[in-house]
Amino acid sequence: MYNEKVIDYFSNPRNVGDIEDADGVGEVGNPTCGDMMTIYIKVKDGILTDVKFKTFGCGAAIATSSMITEMAIGKTIEEALEITRNDVAEELGGLPQVKMHCSNLASDGLHAAIEDYRYKQNIKK
């Protein structure tokens, strides 16, 4: 069902965990549909210096979370906002069609974390 790369990113997840002093936190998904994701980001000079995740969900949900952390680290906020669901799926070598919508939430999670970061920055100002 899943290709080898997806299985690798699922079974050896990269950058798992939370960041206690995160600059932004994004929570997406809901328990009813079975996928929930929290993405934590650290930002310095407009660049994502660290990204971590925690995910409840299927193989695809965990693999996409795992992948987005690798894709986002080192990117500017503007570049990170341009990462789409399709980009994540493509980077994983493809996902089963049925998983493209429900479990491919990682980019949404990242964008939500960036939004949270920007919101907090505005408050500080």
Binding site: V16, G17, E27, P31, M36, M37, F53, K54, T55, F56
Partner: peptide
């Protein structure tokens, strides 16, 4: 459970 956002801590999600 170690990588689950709803395990081991109070969360905004209720499960």
């Amino acid at each position: 459970r170690a990588i689950s956002p709803i395990s081991g801590k109070k969360s905004s999600f209720t499960v």
